[in-house]
């Protein structure tokens, strides 16, 4: 088991993607998908990925619902700004946010969340100091953004991954 499937999650994800891509459950596709899953799983092991631990799936589901709601809300906010014509007196700027989250998977998920919500973009993260730099489109209060990111996203991510 260990020898053939060093990264079972990765192998099963590859198999699933292959079956969805072909939209079939035929024996040939299952075999080819399993072959790809085993091969790519072994190749993935060569990259020496850091171990993935998911502690709390319930918080993960709750975070997903929160993020979907935030994406829709910030889309509408950005549409209102662009079509509302108040682009001239718009203040946007960079915000530096101190983070306690250090898990690489948690940081990757945070990058996806921040960029997927229109209006904020992940710029850089300095791991030595744990400082994240983001650019905010409609920046009114810097402290409010720091509180939003740390309370709304970072805390559940730390509970999930650390």
């Amino acid at each position: 088991m260990r020898r053939w499937l060093p990264h079972p999650t990765m192998s099963f994800v590859v198999l699933g993607v292959w079956l969805v891509l072909n939209q079939s459950l035929a024996v040939g596709n299952l075999l080819l998908g399993a072959f790809l899953g085993i091969g790519l799983g072994a190749a993935f092991g060569r990259l020496q990925p850091p171990p993935l631990r998911i502690r709390n799936r319930r918080i993960m589901a709750k975070l997903f619902v929160t993020v979907v709601g935030d994406v829709i809300r910030s889309n509408l906010a950005l549409v209102r700004i662009i079509l509302g014509g108040r682009t001239s007196k718009l203040t946007s700027g960079f915000v530096a946010i101190p983070l306690k989250l250090t898990d690489p998977y948690g940081l990757a998920v945070l990058a996806c969340i921040i960029t997927a919500t229109p209006g904020t973009i992940w710029v850089s993260y300095r791991s030595a100091q744990g400082v994240l730099l983001i650019h905010v489109f409609d920046l009114i209060d810097e402290g409010e953004w720091i509180a939003t990111i740390t309370q709304r996203y970072e805390r559940p991510l730390r509970e999930i991954f650390e």
Binding site: I72, N75, I81, I82, T87, A116, P118, I121
Partner: peptide, 23 residues
């Protein structure tokens, strides 16, 4: 796309296309 054309600075402009690539 309209937002991309109308924004003044590069860092504001980057935000606009995420409308099309998210929702």
């Amino acid at each position: 796309a309209i937002g991309f054309v109308r924004m003044a600075t590069f860092y504001q402009r980057v935000h606009a296309p995420t409308l099309g690539s998210s929702l």
